[in-house]
Simulated scan of single mutants.
Amino acid sequence: MTQRHRLATRRRHETIAMEHEGQRYKVGLGREVLCDGSCGATAMRFGPIAEVFFNAQKVNSPIDVLVSDSAILMSMLLQYGCPPADIFHAMKRNPDGSPASPLGRAAAFLVEVGHD
């Protein structure tokens, strides 16, 4: 079994807004800081996206719970070394090839922006 990469305490976090089938979501993406505390802000580097947070517009609604739990699973897949493209390709699609779920849209975003 592959070892899970445990994330450092200090991470970069960015938030994006996303819409899927008329519903709005917030997606948080976490990357590790790759330099030690001695490098300056200009020398700071960030690792690949290693965690995903996902929230629906209405907190604690059934869809919010589902996307949040799904994001935890996606984060664990990333931390075990699964490439975002593999995650994206495993998800359901609409007949036109677009992602069928909000999490599928988030996985597509990871592939589009480049994981590393």
Rank of each mutant, 00 (worst) to 15 (best):
Val65Gln: 12
Tyr80Ile: 04
Pro83Asp: 10
Gly37Ser: 14
Val52Pro: 09
Ala56Met: 05
Gly28Leu: 06
Asn55Glu: 12
Thr42Ala: 13
Arg45Cys: 06
Asn94Cys: 09
Pro95Trp: 01
Gly22Thr: 05
Met91Phe: 11
Tyr80Cys: 12
Ser70Glu: 10
Ala85Thr: 07
Asp64Tyr: 01
Ser75Gln: 09
Ser68Thr: 12
Cys39Pro: 00
Ala56Ile: 01
Phe53Pro: 00
Ala43Leu: 10
Gln23Arg: 12
Asp86Glu: 14
Leu78Asp: 10
Lys26Gly: 09
Phe53Arg: 15
Gln79Lys: 09
Val59Pro: 00
Val67Glu: 08
His89Lys: 08
Gly47Gln: 07
Ser70Tyr: 00
Ala90Met: 06
Pro83Leu: 04
Phe46Asn: 04
Ser38Gln: 13
Ile49Val: 15
Ile49Met: 05
Phe54Cys: 12
Val59Gly: 01
Gly22Leu: 10
Asp69Arg: 14
Val27Lys: 02
Ala90Leu: 02
Ser70His: 02
Met44Leu: 15
Cys39Gln: 13
Lys26Asn: 12
Gly40Gln: 07
Met44Arg: 15
Ser68Cys: 11
Arg93Leu: 08
Ser38Cys: 02
Gly22Ser: 09
Leu77Met: 15
Ala41Ile: 09
Ser70Trp: 00
Gly30Pro: 00
Ala90Glu: 03
Asp69Thr: 03
Cys35Asn: 15
Gly81Tyr: 05
Ala71Ile: 04
Asn94His: 11
Asp64Arg: 03
Asp36Gly: 13
Ala41Phe: 06
Ser61Ile: 02
Gly40Pro: 04
Cys39Ala: 13
Gly28Asn: 11
Cys39Asn: 04
